[in-house]
Measured scan of single mutants.
Amino acid sequence: MAAGGDHGSPDSYRSPLASRYASPEMCFVFSDRYKFRTWRQLWLWLAEAEQTLGLPITDEQIQEMKSNLENIDFKMAAEEEKRLRHDVMAHVHTFGHCCPKAAGIIHLGATSCYVGDNTDLIILRNALDLLLPKLARVISRLADFAKERASLPTLGFTHFQPAQLTTVGKRCCLWIQDLCMDLQNLKRVRDDLRFRGVKGTTGTQASFLQLFEGDDHKVEQLDKMVTEKAGFKRAFIITGQTYTRKVDIEVLSVLASLGASVHKICTDIRLLANLKEMEEPFEKQQIGSSAMPYKRNPMRSERCCSLARHLMTLVMDPLQTASVQWFERTLDDSANRRICLAEAFLTADTILNTLQNISEGLVVYPKVIERRIRQELPFMATENIIMAMVKAGGSRQDCHEKIRVLSQQAASVVKQEGGDNDLIERIQVDAYFSPIHSQLDHLLDPSSFTGRASQQVQRFLEEEVYPLLKPYESVMKVKAELCL
């Protein structure tokens, strides 16, 4: 049975990233139509530049190519590739079939990587351009969430054990800070992308030097003109047959890092959902379990974690691919890159769409948070109580021993009897502590235990987050809708 299948058929496997999760716009960027249309555009740009620099290419040939950029006979191309065992030459023939007058000058002087690699770089750039505003929107939604809850005390956790208090907004800023680093890295790697350009079979530009009869300047002009037509500021000066596969490492490393950030955020949300302090959106008709109707599973956060793990592992592909590119190139890269580049971007696209949807509907339960604080705060307040007693004339050592005994009794009630923490009640009825009984409410005010959390939130948002989001103001209103 021949390899390949009808990918629109229910009898043929289709990647869930495309069929179930990723956005239509990201799927289109990695589609065959987008790819092969870009090949034709690159052939047109090459012909236009070659004509401008004096090669015998007519206006009629150029116009014929322009008129057929979208006229792609995919069936013919597939048949040609089956016959020739070469995808680029299959599309040269297919393009030439609908451009008979231009057929002889299509791909003039070029090698397969002229269309293959340059198209990949265009796709990487455009895919990054799709991700950047999506990530900015996630940051914006979380920034709104953090600002609104900047002063809401909550129990902090280290080692997932109760620690000092923080605020809900401050905790959210930990998430935002990681995503801001990801946004900066995505922008950097996007701006650092260079075009492969017009380089020939081993990167020496020998074929173009021959076409222009040894004119170095025209060869350099050709490279520059096509690079500018493709919208790049610069091209690699040095290439082998391909652009260095280190570029793929750079791009997928940034995406993998984004995956790590999203995994951490969504894990926190899942843990908070278990504590009943916070939940992701839950639709009115949504079913959490087929057997347990009360369940409210954090399905979206779980999906993000599941896909983020996949995204983090994909960076190993370009690392290994770059390491086995012998001399000017081997074909070890080809099949692998067809999979890992598309999957990385479709996965990143999915987790950003999902995280935006989550961040637009996060639900906080202040009463649950308050109750958990009441359970733990008495123990945390013991040092403040000791200091207040010393100020009232008591002995630190005597007070410490009193607190120690009462704390152990209260802990026994919590752990052995399943009761509430009654340390404060014990202190309130103990005559030894009568000098500070009137101060206990103040000493137990949760806001006095959150330090500068709310001020940190305000400063972080104003100095770091809002300036970073400013270039994306025009796209901030787009909502994230999930079908599944």
Rank of each mutant, 00 (worst) to 15 (best):
E280K: 05
C98H: 08
K147L: 08
T119H: 15
D422L: 05
H400Y: 06
C266R: 02
A348C: 15
R37A: 14
Q63V: 02
Q408L: 11
T450F: 13
D317M: 13
D32I: 07
M65L: 03
I269A: 03
L469C: 14
E228G: 06
F95Q: 06
F345R: 03
A102E: 01
R309M: 05
H97E: 02
K276T: 09
Q375D: 03
D441A: 06
A77C: 00
Y243F: 14
I373H: 08
T227N: 08
Y294S: 01
E60R: 09
M181W: 09
F379G: 02
L55M: 06
N274Y: 02
C483D: 10
F433C: 05
F208W: 04
L108P: 03
E79A: 13
D11A: 07
V405Q: 00
H400M: 05
P16S: 15
F28Y: 11
L142T: 04
L53W: 03
G4Q: 15
R245Y: 01
M292E: 01
R85T: 08
L319A: 00
L275I: 09
L341D: 05
I386M: 01
D445L: 14
V251A: 11
Y21N: 14
H91K: 00
D87I: 04
G259R: 02
Q286D: 02
G197S: 05
A322N: 12
I249T: 09
G104C: 08
H86V: 00
L258E: 03
S447C: 15
L252D: 10
D422M: 15
T267C: 10
E360C: 03
D441G: 11
P471G: 13
R300F: 02
D182L: 03
L121T: 10
D182R: 04
H7C: 13
Q41N: 05
H437C: 07
D216M: 09
A308Q: 04
F212T: 10
L135N: 13
W45M: 08
L252I: 10
Q51N: 07
V315E: 07
F327L: 08
C180N: 07
L152A: 00
M76R: 09
V364P: 12
E250T: 09
E280W: 01
P298K: 01
V363M: 14
I105G: 04
T94S: 04
T158C: 04
Q286H: 02
R194D: 12
G288M: 04
E383K: 01
E473L: 11
S434G: 13
V429P: 06
K276S: 06
A206F: 02
G4H: 14
M181Q: 11
A47E: 02
A344V: 00
F28L: 04
T354W: 06
H93R: 07
E60Q: 05
Q409N: 11
I358H: 00
A348M: 12
K134E: 11
L142W: 12
H91R: 06
I358M: 14
A381H: 14
T94M: 12
F95R: 01
F74Y: 08
N185P: 13
K233W: 10
T354Y: 06
A308S: 08
Y432M: 12
T267K: 00
P298G: 05
T347M: 03
Q285S: 13
D182C: 01
L152V: 03
F327N: 05
E81Q: 09
V92F: 00
G451F: 04
K402P: 05
D332V: 00
A49L: 03
P298I: 00
R329Q: 02
H86S: 00
S434H: 06
R374M: 06
R426S: 11
